[in-house]
Amino acid sequence: MDFSFLLLALGQIISPQTIAYALAALGLAVQFGFTGLLNFGQAGFMAIGGYAFAITTLRLGFPFWLAVLSTLVATTVMALILGIPTLRLRADYLAIVTIAAAEIIRYVVKTPDLIPITGGSDGLNGAAVTFDALNPIPPGSYGFGPLRYDENDLWIILVGWVFVIVVALLVRQLMRSPWGRVIKGIREDEDAVRSLGKNVFSYKMQSLILGGALGGLAAIINIIPTSLQPDNYGTQTTFFLLTIILLGGATTVFGPLVGAIVFWIVLSLADGFLSLAVQYHWLPITTIQQGPVRFIIVGVALMLIVIFRPSGLIGKKREAFFA
């Protein structure tokens, strides 16, 4: 029996995909967990950010930092477009608009007419050039067993984790500041906060922009080691992110990081065990059914968490969403 999947699952702890999801989930936690904004289109923010980076790099030849800046501009513009008409209305309007916007973006970038710009359904390859050009790590193969990384993999993993930790510390500082107090107040009751002289609309906008920007930056980390695939930014991604923050603790800063790691490990382990189960006929399912079944497992895990640890793995009990 091949148990190498156990080590591969361990590899999920540091994989760029985990970093990306941790960062995007942190953005969502800022919006949803701390401010109470129902952003159901975080995948859309990731897509916009990812495309801004890849298009400016590949089509316009922007240097790395300028391409990153384009991502921030793009996600900010998206936040403004979605936020200005909805943030004055009841919370559910933002949810509807963001979920629709994310899907619109995905369909638009896949339009055949836009292939020269967006690459259509094939997405965009090679946006990592400017980032890899900054790599100081000597070429070679690093790691052990089935966990092997070349110098560029290692580079994005290192930069990615340092970046996520720094961002998380900054967000923690924000949430402990008077700014964070206003933000959390808005989550509890925005009229009360308004009655105390705070410009609630502006704070909600800031939160939407900040969370969206983290989503965009996450997409950069996601596409650098692989490529930009439009279908990676569908509704499913947003729900993975929601799962991650509920798993880790939606009202904590490090919860999304823990949640992302646990999520990908569980998914990867479920995959490995199911492969074995299929191979040795322990379960009456086929290889094709294996994919959906692992999501059932994740769904059950999520239900158990909501029941037994409603505040997430590291959340404080009193701030639970499902208490």
């Binding site: 900054l170 500082q173 924000l174 500041s177 008077p178 700014w179 964070g180 107090r181 206003v182 107040g185 906060v193 105390l196 002289g197 705070k198 800031q206 900040l210």
Partner: peptide, 18 residues
């Protein structure tokens, strides 16, 4: 504390500098 006015830390940039 939320009821107080003129707390510079309610600005997102200044919030980062206690």
């Amino acid at each position: 504390r939320l009821g107080a006015q003129e707390q510079p830390g309610e600005n997102i940039a200044r919030a980062l500098v206690p």
